[in-house]
Computed example of a mutant assay.
Amino acid sequence: MNSVANTCGLSEESLKSSLLTDGYYSVRRYYVDLFWLRTIQRVGHGCRVLDLGGKKDNKRGYFHIEKVRPDLAVQYVNIDEKTNPDFLCSVYDLKIGSESYDAVMLSEVLEHLDQPEKALSEAFRVLKPGGNLLICTPFLFHKHADPDDFGRYTDSWYRVKLSRLGFTSVHVENQGRLWSVLAMYCKLLSGIFRGLDSKPWKKKIACRLVNIGFRALWKIEGSGFLDDNGIVKGATTGYGVVAVKGIVE
């Protein structure tokens, strides 16, 4: 793995602090930001990166690739012209030459595609041999349309599908366990309660109760409690995937 300096000061510690102090920063977004903060270090200095479905501006969360890795040449693909993409086209039919990029990113995108395997095939095509495919997707997360929501995929799905396409060294990580999933929904409930049209004291009590639950569950997540239990470790907010395009000799 390459070691490239993070120039904006974003760290795992600052993300954890934000999760505990920012009422609008979700557990899921924390894991997404953490994955990209760690994984983008795999990409070498000055490399070309293609973000499929991402946005140049109005990004969610605290991880902004241009701030963390300003040395990278990042380009965007999107079907929404309002996002000002470099390539206004479908991820199923990229108007890009083969073997053009050192890394391809898919951040919280695959679940919104009705043909995810076709998008992965295109990602494989535009990657240089030895290039990195980097994916982050939710698993135990509520349906959210952008504009549609088609599916959730397990770690086995990623290993099988990516290996068949020709990717090697496919690594899939769980992003949290059962405690993170429960903590995530406690925090989401707090946001729902804040928006209720009810007496202020009722909202305050409800928010305080779910916040206590969130903090307790988050503490359990970091304690290693029931680490080996199948249900606990089988429940996760999502997956982070790193795969390398094989080099044909």
Score class of each variant (00 low, 15 high):
Thr137Met: 08
Ser14Glu: 12
Val49Trp: 00
Ser163Phe: 05
Ser14Gly: 07
Asp102Val: 06
Val77Thr: 11
Gly166Asn: 02
Lys56Val: 12
Arg28Val: 12
Gly53Tyr: 03
Cys207Val: 11
Val181Ala: 11
Gly46Thr: 07
Met105Leu: 15
Lys204Gln: 08
His45Arg: 15
Tyr76Met: 11
Ala123Asp: 01
Lys82Thr: 15
Lys199Cys: 01
Leu188Gln: 14
Ala5His: 11
Gly130Asp: 01
Val104His: 01
Phe87Met: 07
Pro200His: 01
Pro129Arg: 03
Gly151Glu: 00
Ala5Gln: 14
Ser14Arg: 14
Ala216Gly: 04
Asp146Met: 12
Val91Thr: 14
Lys204His: 04
Leu178Ser: 13
Val104Glu: 00
Phe35Asp: 00
Glu99Tyr: 04
Val91Met: 10
Cys186Pro: 00
Leu209Ser: 02
Gln175Thr: 14
Phe139His: 01
Cys89Phe: 08
Lys219Met: 12
Ala119Lys: 02
Lys55Gly: 10
Val104Ser: 00
Gly23Met: 06
Thr137Tyr: 01
Val210Gln: 01
Leu226Val: 10
Leu15Asn: 09
Val181Cys: 10
Ile96Gln: 02
Phe150Arg: 09
Ile65Arg: 01
Glu13Val: 14
Ala123Trp: 02
Thr39Ser: 11
Gly213Ser: 02
Leu72Met: 11
Val170Ser: 03
Gly46Lys: 05
Lys59Tyr: 03
Val32Glu: 07
Leu20Val: 09
Phe124Trp: 12
Gly97Gln: 08
Gly46Ser: 07
Ile212Phe: 03
Arg208Met: 03
His112Thr: 05
Asp86Ala: 09
Glu66Ile: 10
Arg28Ile: 12
Glu173Gln: 13
Cys207Glu: 03
Gly176Gln: 06
Glu12Ile: 14
Gly230Phe: 10
Val181Ser: 05
Asp148Arg: 10
Leu88Ala: 08
Arg194Gly: 03
Asp22Ile: 11
His144Ser: 03
Leu19Ser: 06
Ser223Val: 10
Phe35Cys: 02
Thr39Trp: 04
Lys128Ser: 01
Ser100Pro: 02
Arg60Gln: 15
Thr236Pro: 01
Trp218Asn: 05
Cys136Ser: 11
Ser26Leu: 07
Glu99Asp: 10
Pro147Lys: 04
Gly61Cys: 09
Cys186Gly: 07
Ala243Tyr: 05
Gly246Met: 12
Phe124Gln: 04
Tyr158Met: 06
Phe193Cys: 05
Asn229Trp: 09
Gly195Cys: 04
Thr168Cys: 13
Lys143Val: 13
Gly213Phe: 06
Val242Asp: 00
Gln175Val: 12
